[in-house]
Write a protein that binds this DNA or RNA. Structure first.
Length: 486
DNA sequence: CTAGGGTTATAT
DNA sequence: ATATAACCCTAG
């Protein structure tokens, strides 16, 4: 039985995590939970794989195939030992895409492409062959490697590569692999346990099992059974609306988790039908962990990858979340002052989201208190007025044409403004002064997107806090949009 | 949190 | 004047 006095021991946490990570929930929520649940140092392989599959699924849903996708596949292979055909083709397709993507980005300057060939094919793939996990190295992979090496010296071959739908192929290959992998994994342990309970079988004995024997043997059974059927229906994967999957976030995780629920548990609302006390307990533990997180900082799922990597290499660190919360001590007396001046009464934040101003910003305040719907189009955009941040912070811009350096007397209390924090600190949202992107910033962004894929803006921002100072993740996203617009 | 549409500032 | 870059808002 579960120890009543320790609501979440490591094993329970593991089960819950495994269960949760397979749910069709938003990535960031999964991520929060991931951070909330304590992970034991020797992370169980099943959970490890679940984690990695979830990461893959996340990449897939945003069609973001990058070298981190490749890493995920390598780590999964590390767990699995014997790669399936689907895994091999996924690995090859992703490796190809990682390289060809560079060509697409800049067909004129092949520098990035050469780097990628070096990194991916002469680095990773070569390492693979040398290491114990050579199972991933199929003949087709070797073939692809030869082709890449040819492409380095032959423009014709590069042209041929460009003509291929590398991204499509990679996405498809990963999708096929994911489906297979999820089928092989079978339902989450908690679900199996719950099903057993329903069938009236005794499974609490397994819970008390001191090692992973229960889990592993069960996993083996599942694997053996499903891999047999996998060969049969491998080709019969359901057609997916590709456009929709681009749009709707989480579609893929939702679908794959649906696929995952095949097997011995009845479909539908099975979770509600399983009133086992153990499951209830698990749910409670889960709920409380989520509740604890409500005040905490949120991280994007890609961060989980880093954590996962750390965890997997054995160096478990409970992520420190406190520093995040305190990192922004920027404050802004100036805003208070200006707010008091009353920016022509248009400074009220629209909508019900922002807390009602407690100040004396005018009589519109009382009106806004009751407004929950969208503001009328007649209302002026509160961000539209031209008050600017502070001329003193524009100085860094490389190419501000008129360096009308306004030396402003720095009030002793004034700190640098954090664009993120400002909204919270001030009652009035004022538009930041547009600051031109430096070439360093642009280059860094390009490189980061190459490495981490499109869409991981928050993650990229955190990777280069010194370079993207004063930028927000939305800025990165917007900048990328500008840079890629034709 | 991200994507995508909308708005504003600035360069041409 | 208008095209574009930077920034903002908000649904999902």
């Amino acid at each position: 039985m579960i120890d009543q006095h320790r609501p979440m021991n490591e094993r329970t946490a593991s089960w819950i995590l495994e269960f949760v990570l397979r749910q069709p929930i938003e990535d960031h929520i999964a991520n929060e939970i991931l951070f909330a649940v304590p992970i034991a140092a020797p992370i169980d392989t099943r959970l490890k794989k679940t984690l990695l599959l979830r990461k893959l699924s996340c990449d897939l849903s945003r069609r973001s195939i990058s070298e981190s996708t490749l890493s995920s596949l390598e780590m999964i292979d590390d767990v699995d030992r014997i790669p399936s055909d689907a895994m091999k083709s996924a690995y090859r397709a992703v490796a190809v895409e990682c390289t060809v993507a560079k060509l697409r980005e800049d067909p004129v300057d092949e520098g990035a492409f050469f780097d990628a060939v070096n990194r991916v094919w002469n680095g990773r793939v070569a390492d693979l062959e040398g290491s114990g996990s050579a199972g991933l190295v199929s003949e087709r992979l070797r073939e692809a490697r030869r082709e890449m090496e040819e492409a380095v010296v032959s423009e014709a071959v590069r042209g041929r590569l460009l003509g291929r739908e590398a991204l499509e192929e990679a996405v498809e290959a990963v999708r096929v692999y994911l489906e297979e992998a999820e089928r092989e994994m079978g339902p989450a342990f908690l679900e199996v346990a719950a099903a057993e309970t329903l069938k009236g079988k005794e499974w609490s004995g397994a819970l008390a099992e001191p090692d992973n024997a229960g889990l592993d043997s069960r996993a083996e059974v599942g694997r053996g059974a499903s891999s047999a059927s996998a060969g049969i229906d491998n080709g019969a994967v359901p057609e997916r609306d590709k456009d929709a999957s681009d749009k709707v976030r989480g579609v893929i995780t939702r679908e794959t988790s649906k696929a995952m629920k095949c097997g011995n548990i009845a479909p539908g609302k099975k979770y509600d039908l399983v009133p086992s006390p153990e499951v209830e307990k698990a749910k409670e533990a889960l709920k409380s962990s989520v509740a604890n997180l409500q005040e905490a900082v949120k991280d994007p799922l890609p961060d989980a990858e880093l954590v996962a990597a750390k965890v997997m290499t054995g160096m478990v660190e409970q992520p420190i979340r406190e520093d995040e919360r305190t990192v922004n001590e920027y404050e802004r007396e100036e805003n208070q002052r200006l707010a008091g001046v009353g920016v022509s009464g248009s400074g009220m934040d629209k909508g019900g989201k922002a807390p009602i101003v407690e100040g004396d910003t005018g009589d519109r305040c009382s009106k806004d208190q009751y407004r929950v719907t969208k503001p009328s189009l007649m209302d002026r955009n509160p961000t539209a007025h031209t008050y600017e941040w502070d001329d003193s912070i524009e100085s860094l811009s490389e190419q501000s044409p008129n360096q009308t350096k306004q030396i402003c007397l720095p009030s002793p209390k004034r700190r640098r403004v954090s664009p993120l924090k400002l909204k919270e600190d001030t009652k009035i949202t004022r538009r930041r002064k547009p600051r031109r992107w430096s070439t360093l910033e642009e280059e860094t962004l390009r490189k980061a997107v190459r490495e981490h894929g499109v869409g991981n803006w928050k993650f990229i921002l955190k990777c280069h806090p010194d370079i993207f100072e004063e930028r927000t993740e939305v800025d990165l996203k917007d900048k990328w949009r500008n840079m890629t617009r034709s």
